[in-house]
Design a protein around this nucleic acid. Structure first.
Length: 689
DNA sequence: GAGTTTGAAACT
DNA sequence: CAGTTTCAAACTC
């Protein structure tokens, strides 16, 4: 079980944070490796259906739901949860005061954990006791006989919903959602393994016409795999699973599984998934921290966008943190109120992606932030066959954005640094395409990216390239290799820019075809027990001894490893040459630092001196000009000082006393200068000169 | 700054 | 996969 984020910890009451129930084998037992495929068949039936809880394996019946009608009643009219007869009037008031419809997070024992977004925008958490019948999760794995309310996260159409599941042994899932009540059919497929980890299942019907495009997408679930369905408007189902120790999951038709929290993939991986009506790719996204994936629907746009947000970010907004993180940490299906995720939620980089949170979007590109550095991606959830296979290996800092003109390419690869740069340019692109312009790019500038502000990251200095023949569209070009546009470079005939996006995309594809990992960082983590950092491919140096910057290992300040094919390597731990070089480098660095410090200090002193000798004149608010210290003034001052020195000499004063007299005279001179200057300035001001 | 060296990338 | 060519950065003078 993953650890609940501190942000959430601070928000949630202890009861909510208690995740024991989830780790309880009796709960996870039936969450076997089997992935229930939740068909996208929609109906608007009420909660009188049956289902098998895919999370707990508990089968409960509609009767159970009715049994619990003392706790809940479903309003088919407005599709809102109505809390009825809750034992706690306080909770009732909390619900009423919420700015959004309440969403059930989960049931734990005899408690229902409910969240809503308060009118202040802050998440509200409260508990509702189960009073009508025997509450709690099923005690029996697989096929439970005791009706027990369960909750399931199911995505229908563009939206994802939390479903209180009360059916038994059926194959339907009843969805109760803040704004819509739906029932989806699920194939009867019962989880079996008792030792299986908890999984999340999301059913996603793409472009379901039964749903309004404007219908907000409820944030839903943490996951690791995004399925991008084909542009063909056939219903698609996404199955997100959350096994704790397995990485890949079964794929049935157009379903994909989410890799587990505990087996994070360092890199996003896309795998073609078979399907009718077009190819699909599932994107496995690393999940080393707690980012959320927000699925966003753009009305009128055939693409679905997802946005990845770190838990930290979410918490910083005060809106996402609670519900989302809690769902992640508990590993249980969780529904978060639609109001819990807003477009204003900024996007920051993430170490990895953990959550999948569909999200309403009036119109916007979605910036997806992923991975090791500050990789931000804007990517359609629909497939992008042209490049999608290489999507796994997009370089850090790459942004995928819908391409202008709605071309077949479908998106534009943009360096992360351009996310902020492109605020205007991208809006232009968006406006010229089917992609809505408003809010096209989310502002990220003021949010920290892995501890570094976006401003810092985006302004990160980079060496300009000097390419002449490659058009900056080959990996020879460092800019291109780093997934960046050329900017302020010295290259000739550069195609690594927005004006040549088509060529650029083609080049990227070519590179990825040649080497799917072409854009991955070359310096990655080594195997266990080895140095933390090592070159992924190793170097092939022959003449440099791996002690010059020709060597990629040396350049990265790491030692050569066993995978290097270098000849005459001197870049190893005990190498005396290497040690000497390191010492020299250290010494040089110290020297530079000292020089820098000295310069800074000197500059500061000069500045300070000028400040003292040129006081601010209140009348003008400015400082006196240097012109007051004219040559004549200096000469006069020097004469005064010399006179003072002569005086001291004639009176045979000791040196110290002579110095004192001279300095004193210097002080008098300065005061005279300042006084005169101030007077002159005041006079000048009085006559408006 | 021009020319050389070097090794990764690209090509065959 | 190996050998060769191309390329741009690193380096030297």
């Amino acid at each position: 079980m993953d650890v609940v984020s501190p942000e959430l910890n601070s928000l949630l009451p202890d009861e909510i944070m208690d995740t024991e129930a989830i780790e309880d084998p009796s709960v996870s037992v039936s969450t076997s490796s089997t992935l229930l495929s939740l068909k996208s068949t929609l109906s608007t039936s009420t909660a009188t259906t049956k289902t098998t809880d895919s999370v707990t394996g508990t089968t409960v019946s509609t009767g159970g739901l009715q049994k619990h009608a003392t706790q809940f009643a479903f309003s088919a009219a407005n599709h809102q949860i109505i809390l009825n007869k809750v034992a706690s009037s306080q909770a009732t008031e909390a619900v009423k005061s919420a700015g959004t419809p309440p969403q059930i997070i989960k049931q734990e024992g005899q408690k229902l954990l409910v969240t809503a977004i308060g009118k202040s925008g802050q998440p509200i958490f409260f508990q509702l006791p189960h009073t009508g019948s025997k509450p709690g999760v099923s005690q029996t794995a697989g096929n439970t006989k005791s009706p027990t309310p369960q909750f399931k996260v199911v995505t229908i159409g563009e939206r994802t919903e939390l479903k209180p599941v009360m059916a038994s042994s059926g194959n339907q899932v009843t969805t109760l959602q803040a704004q819509q009540l739906k029932t989806v059919q699920i194939p009867k497929k019962t989880p079996a393994s008792s030792a299986a980890p908890i999984k999340f299942i999301i059913t996603k019907t793409v472009n379901s016409k039964g749903l309004s495009p404007q219908m907000p997408v409820s944030p839903v679930i943490q996951g690791r795999v995004l399925t991008q369905s084909s542009p063909v408007m056939t219903p698609k189902t996404i199955t997100l699973s959350e096994p704790h120790n397995t990485n890949m999951q079964s794929i049935s038709g157009k379903k994909i599984a989410i890799s587990p929290l505990k087996t994070p993939s360092k890199n996003i991986k896309s795998v073609p998934v078979g399907g009718v009506g077009g190819s699909q790719y599932k994107t496995i996204i690393p999940l080393s921290t707690q980012p959320n994936v927000q699925q966003i629907q753009v009305p009128g746009n055939r693409f679905h966008y997802v946005r990845l947000v770190t838990a930290t970010t979410a918490s910083s907004t005060g809106q996402l943190s609670g519900p989302n993180t809690s769902s992640v940490q508990t590993g249980k299906p969780v529904m978060v109120g639609t109001g819990a995720v807003r477009m204003s939620v900024p996007v920051v980089s993430a170490q990895a992606i953990k959550q999948v949170v569909p999200k309403p979007l009036p119109s916007a590109a979605q910036v997806v932030t992923t991975a090791q550095t500050q990789q931000r991606l804007i990517m359609p959830a629909t497939p992008l066959p042209q490049i999608q296979p290489g999507f796994t290996s997009l370089p850090p800092g790459t942004v995928l954005a819908p391409a202008p003109g709605g071309s077949s390419v479908g998106y534009t690869v943009v360096p992360a640094q351009y996310v902020t740069q492109l605020q205007q340019p991208f809006a232009t692109l968006a406006s010229s395409s089917s992609f809505p312009a408003s809010g096209a790019i989310q502002t990220q500038a003021k949010l920290p990216l892995n501890g570094v502000s976006a401003a810092e990251t985006t302004s990160r200095p980079r060496k300009p390239c000097n390419c002449t023949k490659s058009q900056c569209l080959k990996l020879y070009c460092d800019c291109f290799a780093n997934g960046e546009f050329c900017n302020n470079c010295n290259c000739n005939n550069c195609f690594n820019n927005l004006e040549h996006e088509t060529e650029r995309l083609k080049a990227i594809k070519t590179c990825l075809d040649r080497n799917p990992e072409a854009f991955k960082p070359k310096i990655g983590k080594g195997k266990e027990g080895e140095s933390d950092r090592r070159h992924s491919k190793g170097c092939n140096c022959k003449r440099s001894g791996c002690l010059k910057n020709y060597c990629e290992c040396y350049e990265a300040k790491i030692m050569c490893s066993s995978i290097c094919k270098c000849i005459g390597c001197k870049n190893f731990e005990e190498s005396p040459e290497r040690k000497t070089l390191m010492h020299l480098a250290d010494a040089a660095e110290v020297r530079v630092q000292q020089q820098t410090a000295a310069k800074t200090k000197l500059s500061s002193q000069i500045s300070d001196l000028l400040m003292r000798t040129m006081p601010v004149v209140s009348s003008g608010g400015g400082r006196l000009p240097f012109t007051f210290v004219t040559k004549e003034v200096l000469e006069a001052t020097c004469e005064c000082l010399l006179e003072q020195a002569k005086k001291a000499e004639q009176s045979r004063q000791p040196q110290a006393e002579a110095e004192r007299m001279i300095l004193e005279e210097f002080g008098h001179c300065l005061m005279s200068i300042i006084s005169s200057a101030g007077k002159a300035k005041a006079d000048c001001a009085s006559i408006n000169c």
